[in-house]
Design a protein around this nucleic acid. Sequence first.
DNA 1: GTCTATATGGCGATAGAC
DNA 2: GTCTATCGCCATATAGAC
Lengths: 198, 198
Amino acid sequence: MDSKEKILIEAKLLFAQKGFAGVSMRNLAAAVDMSVAAIYHHFPDKNSLYLEMMRYAFTDKSQQLTRLWYSGESAEDKLRNFVKLMIEMLEQDPVFDRLIQREIIEADPKRMQILATDIFNNQFCYLLELIAEISPKTDTHLTAVSVLGLIKYHQEIKPLRHFWQGWKPEHEHADVIADHVLNLLLNGIQNGNNSEKK
Amino acid sequence: MDSKEKILIEAKLLFAQKGFAGVSMRNLAAAVDMSVAAIYHHFPDKNSLYLEMMRYAFTDKSQQLTRLWYSGESAEDKLRNFVKLMIEMLEQDPVFDRLIQREIIEADPKRMQILATDIFNNQFCYLLELIAEISPKTDTHLTAVSVLGLIKYHQEIKPLRHFWQGWKPEHEHADVIADHVLNLLLNGIQNGNNSEKK
DNA sequence: GTCTATATGGCGATAGAC
DNA sequence: GTCTATCGCCATATAGAC
């Protein structure tokens, strides 16, 4: 395999786990079984390596989703499939998931706009249309963010949740989480008993 | 002011901004205008300082919440107040919010267990009981995580959301978000039209 | 392209004076 | 309780041989 790509793959893993400040060039060199100097042959400095890794990690994540929006299914089935696909994607590539989280918390203004507009906004618009169809009365922007939040948070909290009461092994399975999230979205937590309301 | 408390206050700010690995004892010493050795007089090492800062940052928060659990209100009103209080707390103290985010993402195994059990678990248990009362049929653990996710994600995504379609200035207000989250939790997104279901 | 060796400086933590 | 001075180590980055 190409040495440069090997470095990028390992860098993605390490930076996602430990953050920019938490990963040393020595750590990375050890992980790819090379010397530090060999890495500096491929990248001018640590910062450039990080940026190039980000570009590498973000390529072609949206193809699977786009196929979904153009399927001929009903709006509710599309939402069902969207939630399931997103949860599966995050579970399948947790490294990618953590990288997004890192970027949001670091909140570098330049990178932030690229991330928001170039990568996420397109998919967000499809989701908005879908929600407008299913639930025209609600604020579609807020609801779309809630849908993403439910999907994202269950993944995000995985390191903590098994310490908490009521945890079961099945709570780690993508389809169990997907079913729960979809049920909550479509019915709330009262399971059909949503009478009393102002 | 007490030197130790001054250190804790500044440490909270710095660790929230830059993370554990991103803050050196020298940075902190400069921020409180003391020597590094003076800090080591109050704390045995960097890790202990961090843990004590976390406990310090959480004490007043859990007091507010605990008062809420022992109020004589109905379960649904308690949930309503919990969501509102949490959103207000996160908005009012964004440093605290970032601290949680940092902690979850850094997921240091040693710190994780202490924080998850010592600090979060108590409040989580109250939330579990509440949900068990409101919605006995659902999986309470998953539902509690969803409640936290809805609250947390709307705050977490703030740096990104205004780039996305459908955003309005009012989406930044705590009470608008709280109303939206509560409506979603109690009714789902279909607004009472939750008939068709497997 | 990859290595060994090294320059230069910041890191966590400690010793001991005041 | 706070300081100055220092230890030993690890950080980023470079030089030059192969």
